[in-house]
């Protein structure tokens, strides 16, 4: 992986503004098109929002690491947190075929992540959730 960088965020939703800025900087440095920058920001936002909102059973401050890098024509992101074990790959997909009236509100974030990214892998190492995400550049 070419030298990227790692962002450390506290488990507060306002930290997502820093994430947005970091993705913008990363996108500019790597010459990513507007759509790809949006996709990356969205995917990381959805995952971090989930971790911050649902991941912790206490009121303590926790640090979440988000590494961003590029390897040839492939972008690679690694999220590491000490939240409760959660594998996004096991989350059920929302029923997108139902009518507007019947459609369930929720479950969309993880669906977006899995659809937009080309590869997603999860592992629990010690007390850490590690999510590895890859996106091919067209």
């Amino acid at each position: 992986m070419e030298p990227g960088f790692t962002l450390r965020l506290d488990n507060r939703l306002l930290e997502l503004d820093r994430l947005a800025d970091a993705v913008e900087t990363f996108g500019e440095a790597h010459g990513l098109a507007a759509k790809l920058r949006f996709q990356v920001r969205l995917v990381l936002d959805e995952l971090l929002t989930n971790i911050i909102t649902y991941g912790y059973g206490d009121d303590d401050t926790h640090s979440i690491a988000v590494a961003m890098g590029q390897e040839g024509r492939r972008l690679r992101f690694v999220i590491e947190d000490d939240a409760r074990p959660f594998d996004p790959l096991t989350a059920g997909a929302p029923d997108l075929g139902s009518t507007a009236e019947q459609r369930q509100i929720g479950g969309l974030g993880i669906h977006l992540v899995r659809t937009i990214m080309d590869r997603v892998a999860y592992e629990r190492v010690g007390g850490t959730n590690r999510l590895i995400l890859e996106k091919d550049i067209d």
Binding site: A33, K35, F38, L42, P94, A100, R103, I105, H111, L112
Partner: peptide
Amino acid sequence: LQQLKKTQGKLVLSTIKDYMKEVFEISG
């Protein structure tokens, strides 16, 4: 949309930026 449908109302969207349109498709 769900609230408006209950009263036979309508919700219409416009002028979504190209780079965001895919997300509306993926979401159904």
